[in-house]
Amino acid sequence: MLSDTERQEIDSEIRHAPAKSAVAIDALKIVQRERGWISGDAIKDIARHLEMTPDELDGVATFYNRIFRKPVGRHVIEVCDSISCWVMGSDSIKDILARRLGVGEGGTTPDGRFTLLPVDCLGACHRAPAAVVDGELHGELDEAKLDEMLGELRAKEP
């Protein structure tokens, strides 16, 4: 079942679209923002609302890599591993995070708090290596900055 907020937001997208199915991606993003990821049930619920079949919606959902079809942690740490960040040492940034969190690339900590994901070029090449954490950009990363960042995240949610 879609929540009222989800439904309202999706409907407001539908209002300026020529067809309900045209807002498929917006709808997926709206629901993902609310729930963190898109479950199989979510696919069915959204599809029904857009008068699509689950097959149709999931064909779209699975195409895009920023639609998560698997659960993610409450905080998603996306480390850029594209060229400029890689030149500037993104591998070691990923290593440090993996060690600190105890999970590999794509993994989620057992407490469901953090998910570590690689991400394509964030358009922050001049501030490499860079990462996005919960939607906020962090540049010129090094070990100290990472620890500070993790500390802040942990502090937010003890």
């Binding site: 679209a17 067809a19 199915s21 045209a22 807002v23 498929a24 991606i25 917006d26 997926l28 993003k29 779209v60 195409f63 895009y64 890599n65 920023r66 639609i67 394509d120």
Partner: peptide
């Protein structure tokens, strides 16, 4: 967008804007 570099290609972009 919901990701994917190909979305920058202008015709792929149009399909994406159509929800496809």
């Amino acid at each position: 967008s919901a990701g994917r570099y190909i979305c920058g290609e202008e015709t792929a972009l149009l399909n994406s804007l159509e929800g496809k």
